[in-house]
Amino acid sequence: MSLETVVEDIRDEARERAKEIRNDADQRAEEIIADAEADADVIVDEAEAEAEREIEREREQQLSSAKLEAKQMRLEARRDALQDVRQTVESTIADIDGDEREELTRALLDAAADEFDSDSEVRVYGRSDDEGLISDILDDYDGFEYAGEHDCLGGVVVESETSRVRVNNTFDSVLEDVWEDELKEISARLFEEQ
């Protein structure tokens, strides 16, 4: 064999080997591309699923937030309505006059007077507009004297230094007790929750 034939055989063999390497590389590249495409499909599916979960979480948060805001608005509206009712009641109580005011003031003073010893010097406070009424009523009580103004809707605040007792029998205190005791019923009637 001639040198040229050997060289040609080596070249043919090298070409054949290069062709095999290229075919193997192409096949390996196709496998890598197929694996990468499969991985990409999985990643896309996971990303879509995560996006759907995130959308659902966001929707639930917004829905929950809207429900909470609506509930707060209802509560605020109820609070405002109850405040309006309370102000109307206070105004109505403050406007009580004549015999009814005297009767109520006398009843509150009688209840307070039971808390004091008969020899106590007792000071009575009341609404400035009721000074004359209270002074007239106090004519019936020994040791009791009108001592000045108390900011209230009516009624009396009675105290004695000797017995260190102070009784708040104002219309305000009575209203507060009734309001606290009946708030649930008032609310149920106002908002028809029975």
Rank of each mutant, 00 (worst) to 15 (best):
D119P: 04
R127H: 13
F171W: 04
D172H: 04
D130E: 06
E131I: 00
I137S: 04
R74I: 12
G132F: 05
S64P: 04
S173P: 02
A36V: 08
R22M: 10
A188R: 14
S2P: 00
R74Y: 05
A147K: 00
A25C: 08
R59I: 14
I134N: 00
N168D: 15
A18M: 10
Y125M: 01
D140R: 14
E52H: 06
T88E: 10
V6L: 12
N23K: 11
R57Q: 09
R74T: 13
S2D: 13
A112M: 02
I55K: 09
S65T: 15
E60A: 13
D45H: 00
V7T: 12
A40N: 10
S2K: 13
V7Y: 10
G143F: 05
L190A: 07
D136M: 07
E131M: 07
R101C: 03
D39N: 11
E149R: 15
A70N: 08
T88L: 10
I93Y: 04
D110A: 03
V156W: 04
E192H: 08
S187C: 07
Q72T: 13
T5R: 11
R22A: 10
A66C: 03
E46V: 09
D26T: 13
F191A: 03
D129M: 05
A94F: 08
G98D: 05
D114C: 01
S2R: 09
L68S: 10
E90S: 03
Q27T: 11
D39L: 12
L183A: 11
R53V: 07
W179F: 01
L68V: 12
S118C: 06
F191I: 01
S163N: 06
V6Q: 12
G155H: 00
E48G: 00
K67E: 14
R11C: 05
R22V: 07
G155M: 07
V44A: 11
E176L: 02
A51E: 07
R164H: 10
V122T: 11
D181A: 14
D129V: 11
S91Y: 07
E90F: 05
E31H: 07
D45A: 15
S135I: 04
